[in-house]
Nucleic acid binder design. Sequence first.
DNA 1: GTGAAAGCGCTAACAG
DNA 2: CTGTTAGCGCTTTCAC
Lengths: 347, 347
Amino acid sequence: MTVTIKDVAKKANVAPSTVSRVIANSSRISQRTKERVREAMEDLGYHPNFNARSLANKSTKTIGLVMPNSANKTFQNPFFPEVIRGISTKAHMLEYGMYLSTGQTEEEIFEEVQHMVQGRRVDGIILLYSRVNDKVMSYLYEQNFPFTVIGRPYDSRMSEITFVNNDNFKAAKTVTEYLLLLGHERIAFVGGNLDFVVTVDHMEGYERALKNAGIKMRDEYVVFHEELQEGGQEAVIALMSLKEPPTALLVADDIMTFGVLRMLSEMDVSVPDDVSIVSFNNLMISELSSPPMTTVDINIYSLGYEATTLLIEKILKPDVNPRKMIIPHKLIKRQSCQRQTKKLAPQ
Amino acid sequence: MTVTIKDVAKKANVAPSTVSRVIANSSRISQRTKERVREAMEDLGYHPNFNARSLANKSTKTIGLVMPNSANKTFQNPFFPEVIRGISTKAHMLEYGMYLSTGQTEEEIFEEVQHMVQGRRVDGIILLYSRVNDKVMSYLYEQNFPFTVIGRPYDSRMSEITFVNNDNFKAAKTVTEYLLLLGHERIAFVGGNLDFVVTVDHMEGYERALKNAGIKMRDEYVVFHEELQEGGQEAVIALMSLKEPPTALLVADDIMTFGVLRMLSEMDVSVPDDVSIVSFNNLMISELSSPPMTTVDINIYSLGYEATTLLIEKILKPDVNPRKMIIPHKLIKRQSCQRQTKKLAPQ
DNA sequence: GTGAAAGCGCTAACAG
DNA sequence: CTGTTAGCGCTTTCAC
């Protein structure tokens, strides 16, 4: 059968507690017994039982990852493998494991989170998204359960919740200004799901830049889409059918930009000659579009890595003050933007 | 503090064991007590402790997912979110959770798997890749631990291991024949990492088709690359620098194809006019390349879904015979292939 | 139908 | 430095 701590104890002629101490590498055990015990462990092929430990310990050494509902395509964004890679690296360093939510709908996910929390299945949770009025976040907050969010809380509890984010407002503002500097005035905004905080922040950055430049916002230049690929395509149709189509586009996500580029190419609109495009995220494949896209690198890996750092800090010291961390972004200029020179129909 | 089964028992005026039976919905408990107990659970906000259950039960209701090492870029392939979506769906239906490996190197992953197995952290494991001589697979096999692999075992143990795969040999063969029918004779093979079984199968399918058509294989037309994007790019350089460059390419993976398309476009080689391309996987973004790529849909989601079905079957009935399952594939014709008409330099 | 009690494998006082 | 003992919260015989 499975070999337990008792077997090891017997073989090494010590008490079970001593074995336990050796596992924990307690400093109050003599070097000699440690060796004897370790040898016995080796001989018997002993491995500590994870559940027994967790039960006695009240600590699972695992963190729960909560994704947005996997029903829609959001989930397929390579954004996720990349955050997870960041989380994974740090988690592994600190010897934590990762437990994934499996829910397809928001309701399912909420229930799962409850189970994770109440069932003590994980020591802490990372929210891999930030939605505007998120039930899960509220729950975690009320339960005073250790968690961090990637993105930011939308409401007043901002100062009471630990999160890791980019300065999405500023990124969008900068990028809009960049387009403005290139001579564009008809700049459209193709946003993601308005339920996500990042979308709101992007939009505000965009608005601010236009306002500062004294350019009036046009409602028909602002569109939102849920689904990434199709979204990009629909947005293009809507925008390019306007009497005065935009000469530049701010697109929420690189995947969406692939959809935009595809549709534009079908319509024989040339990028960047006819339309300039900037988007966000800088996924691994983003340099492979044609033309290669100009995009904001948000350092996805670091978002995950740092979220894990903060979470584990919180797990270890629950009373420490909430922390926020802003990961720097960087505009990666490639070939989807160009100076606006064409004559346009008068406004 | 946390509310336990005892608290519920007290409140409902029954023994803890009765509460346990109600949780398990035992048929030997009267309807009346069931209701009383459920009410008490509700009132107190009781949630069963996961670790205690697992310990007593010797069952964790969670499956471990083992990915290839996340150090290299393979990990960023949207293939993974999609398999996981399939796994997740089925796991959720059967009320299983998912635990992720975090290792960066093969050695780290191997150690983690040992911990998962010996520490009884998971009830079974899905290998999300299949490598030619895989230590992890051998270990799992020797331990007689429930596991399934996505892909197939390479060696003689094929008949003793449960797996879910595509018929990659046939897919590659068909696709090569398709190119042949379009009049191509100079067909190159741009494979992935030769350590992966899928690469071997693809290559054999390709060879077989050429052989059947009486076309001699040329070594310089067969290249392999580890890294997906860069790989694609390097392959193109090598291939197009040949005195007799190929007129058609079989590319291992859609992501790689993005790299290929990019590089080809930089070299002013037009697809499909100058070169035709077929690749494998049909990722969500694959229809957004320019031109949209012709590719083999391997039904990634189903690979994950069915692997989970088989795994849980194995967990529940460990003595059942190993099973294999082949998921159908389908050629998706888009616009990266064309009939070969140009005059070529004589062979 | 329900209760009492032992035990899953480990940790953590408390002794000594 | 090391052993003894009492749980962690749940399941599961075995009684009744």
